[in-house]
Design a protein around this nucleic acid. Structure first.
Length: 657
DNA sequence: TTAGGGTTAG
């Protein structure tokens, strides 16, 4: 574990500034209350005003009682009550106002109040009631239609929302930018096998272009978000670059698009472009959270620290969401202790996300017992664990090989009213499988009441690779090839298992399958950040800086290691080639190049931090252990699953990963 | 009157 960066000390001293709407002063309420007690013959104007003030203070029972006696409530009074009911989650009050409205000759057909009623019912998750208001509304203007559309789209009733939109078209209701924005969300929510969401979004995009809304700021921003969610990054980029007016939200959506789609480097770059393009574009907390997420994604600690300073300067450290993201960034960049420090600093404001971050932080660094301890502290504090809490703590047990503790936690889930999802089973199969308890892992899969997800079978396959179990690997693949036929990784893993079992014929069959279906293995990449600049290394990349120098250095280490009895572990090289050639391929693995680059370009006391997009291979693991001892350098490698802290020839994972 | 972007896992 390491913590070379020291957090800004003013983190401790900045005052906590609560955010949120200001409430009216209570003295005004008391004043009004004394003016117009419910029992006296106060004027209706005053009572109207009093109800509104009571609503603003959340005193809904009294406001509702007053409404009963009021002969002619104003539009504003109805609105206040509906907004307050939605805010307080009081469905009964919304229904009471609804009944009163129906009997009101002045407002019973007011479209403004129909809109508010639909909004309120939607916020209260009372969709049938919202639908009823809509169906019975005598006057349906564009606001009423859009409110219904929004209610359906946000409640994930995609098909119904799209039907609503086509009704609008059929009845000649003009479709505006709001309709498009909600309609696009509905496309994502509407999942149908025969019509994929991507086709629907593209169709609605084309429709918006035809009606002149394609470049409207809000519509285009929603388009970026939709394409981001569908993984269609180039479509999002196209919309973004064609927009005539981009505001902070448009930029943030594009940053989020890259961050969500595993292109954190681009997310950071576009954030920097935004900062350079217009002084009026001032990032807000949402922008910051997205960029922190991206920094965490590429292990860009230097960039993350720049953001940390920015957060302190602008007072964003009063927001728990920002601090949670900051803490996660530090832990994902290898600085577990700073993460813990920020968690402590959040103090009593911490929420379930803060706890989950810390639990998974310990887990990914291999500190299973600490992770469980944090989980127990969380329970003691009365926080209800979520689905993610259990994924985090079970994952931690898996990384540390804590089988019995993991089983106990898994069984305890029902006590906390958390139903095991496929993800939890995947963690358990991983935990049992890694520990070599493959039979138990298979029995667990067979006992599942829900359909095993690809992750569940993938965990089993991974375990089979570690323990060389061909039969179960074939079983896992018979499901995986069905569930995700285009995932080359599964074919490669099985080929690897066959190769280790010396079943070269089977390896060749799989390679042919890969070629036949034009499936490509995800190439291995490693990153390193030196002086706040990211350098990436691919094993098939010719544009690597200082390549010859790096190769020479790695060669020297390997020669030295061979003198001490090291034999290169060429099992990860699947090609049927000479052993010598396999060794040459191993020398070019991206993580070795990145480590060598770090050795040459950083100061002698500095920790070398590498990120790898795949699992660390056995040979690189051995070589890195040796380099850490030989050069007396601490090397932290984050692979796709976890952290490896190399120091003095030993890895923190104790060769269990 | 309405709207657009974010936090924790594997």
């Amino acid at each position: 574990m390491s913590a070379t960066a020291s957090p800004h000390t003013s983190l401790l001293h900045l005052p906590h500034r609560p955010f949120g709407p200001r409430r009216p002063r209570l003295t005004r309420l008391r004043c009004l209350a004394s003016l117009a007690p419910a029992s006296s013959g106060a004027s209706p104007e005053n009572e109207d005003h009093l109800i509104q003030t009571l609503c603003a203070h959340g005193r809904l029972a009294r406001a509702a009682a007053l409404l009963q006696g009021l002969p002619a409530p104003t539009q504003r009074t109805y609105e206040s009550l509906l907004l307050a009911a939605a805010r307080a989650g009081d469905t009964a009050l919304a229904a009471a106002v609804h009944r009163r409205l129906e009997a009101d000759p002045v407002f019973c057909s007011d479209p403004f109040l129909s809109t508010r009623l639909i909004d309120a019912y939607a916020a209260l998750s009372a969709l049938p009631a919202a639908r009823q208001v809509f169906d019975e509304a005598p006057v349906k203007n564009i606001f009423v239609w859009n409110a219904m559309l929004k209610a359906l789209a946000l409640a994930d009733h995609g098909e119904e929302a799209l039907a609503c939109l086509s009704d609008m078209g059929r009845l000649g209701v003009p479709i505006d930018s709001y309709s498009y924005a909600h309609g696009l969300k509905a496309c994502i929510a509407a999942s149908a096998l025969h019509t994929p969401a991507s086709a629907r979004v593209r169709e609605m995009h084309a429709h918006a272009i035809r009606r002149g809304y394609g470049l409207h700021t809000h519509v285009a921003t929603t388009l970026i978000d939709c394409y981001a969610k569908l993984g269609m990054v180039s479509f999002a980029e196209h919309v973004f670059t064609s927009m005539p007016d981009r505001n902070l939200v448009s930029w943030s959506a594009m940053i989020g698009c890259y961050a969500k789609n595993e292109r954190p480097g681009d997310a950071i770059q576009i954030f920097q472009e935004m900062m350079a393009s217009d002084a009026d574009l001032v990032p807000n907390s949402i922008t910051i959270v997205s960029v922190l997420h991206a920094c965490a994604g590429v292990n860009a600690l230097g960039q993350g620290k720049v953001l940390h300073a920015y957060i302190l300067r602008r007072g964003f450290d009063s927001l728990v969401s920002v601090l949670n993201a900051l803490m996660a960034m530090y832990m994902k960049c290898g600085c577990l202790e700073i993460g813990r420090y920020i968690f402590n600093w959040i103090g009593r404001r911490r929420n379930v996300v803060s706890w989950n971050s810390l639990i998974s932080g310990y887990g990914m660094h291999g500190f299973g017992r600490e992770s469980i301890q944090v989980f127990e502290e969380m329970i003691e504090e009365g926080i209800s664990p979520s689905i993610i809490t259990f994924i985090s703590v079970l994952g931690a047990c898996s990384h540390a090989g804590l089988v019995e503790q993991g089983k106990k936690l898994f069984e305890s889930m029902v006590e906390y009213n958390v139903t095991p999802h496929a993800e939890h089973y995947a963690c358990m199969v991983d935990l049992l499988g890694r520990a070599g308890r493959l039979v138990e892992a298979v029995e667990l899969i067979q006992s599942m009441r829900i359909q095993p997800s690809p992750q569940v079978w993938g965990s089993l396959l991974g375990a089979c690779r570690i323990h060389g179990h061909v039969e179960y690997a074939e079983m896992a693949c018979s499901h995986l090839f069905d569930l995700e036929p285009r995932n080359a990784g599964n074919y490669v893993l099985l080929a690897d298992i066959y190769a280790r079992a010396k079943l070269q014929n089977q390896v060749d069959v799989l390679k042919e399958l890969l070629e036949e279906h034009a499936l490509e293995k995800v190439p291995g990449y490693s990153w390193i950040e030196v002086k706040k600049k990211l350098y990436s290394f691919g094993s098939v990349d010719n544009k690597i800086p200082q390549l010859e120098e790096l190769q020479a250095l790695i060669g020297e280490f390997v020669t030295q290691m061979k003198n001490e009895g090291y034999v290169p572990d060429t099992r990860s090289v699947l090609y049927d080639i000479e052993e010598e050639e396999k060794e040459r391929i191993l020398l070019g693995h991206s993580e070795k190049l990145a480590v060598a680059f770090g050795l040459i370009n950083t100061g002698s006391g500095e920790v070398i931090r590498i990120t790898k997009n795949l699992r660390l291979c056995e040979d690189c693991h051995s070589v890195t252990k040796f380099i850490s001892k030989f050069t007396d350098r601490e090397i932290v490698v984050r692979d796709v699953n976890r952290f490896h802290h190399f120091r003095d020839g030993v890895c923190s994972c104790r060769d269990y990963w």
